[in-house]
Amino acid sequence: MNVFRLAGDMTHLLSILLLLLKIYATKSCSGVSRKTQELYAIVFIFRYLDLFTDFISVYNTFMKVVFIASSLAIVWCMRFHPVVRRSYDRELDTFRYFFLVGASFALALIWHEKFSVQEVFWAFSIYLEAVAILPQLVLLQRSGNVDNLTGQYVFFLGAYRAFYILNWIYRYLTEPRFTRWIAGTSGVVQTALYADFFYYYFISWKNNSKLKLPA
């Protein structure tokens, strides 16, 4: 564990807490893409299949359980909570996300570290995570106005990936024979997807104005 990875995990955790806070405090999921949240639930479930086979550390296991439970809780709220579900922007959240799932799985069948069920699903989860934010970004762009908590949620989610890139650079420099081709490449793609959002987030932050994305 180094400071970059810890910072990445903490910003990731913070992003999820912000989203839960937004949903509970405002009883609204307006501006939140249920499709992105469902993709994250799939990502965590398929990546953490090793919960049952490999023990890394108490921290590792704890975080995995938190990520799976929180993503399922968010999806549950958006689908079934009697009040929250009514604020779901169904007509704006129309990204065809099954395409992302299919493409990620196909890529995992081609590019993986080892051809086994667990390794193919692990690679699948990495590829899917890289693009899982797309429905959320499309929804934000369509709705134009972004409320503060949703904006901060996306910002911290992007920050998490940026910290992980620093973590890989650090590990590459300090650990012998350290390579993370699959995670590293996907991580760069994932972070790049946030570039546009980051740009407008910083502009609004600098001007102390509400975040607006151009149509």
């Binding site: 995990d9 590792n60 995670a183």
Partner: peptide, 10 residues
Amino acid sequence: TEQPEVHDEL
């Protein structure tokens, strides 16, 4: 053959 490393990251 080379075994994949344990995935120690989240």
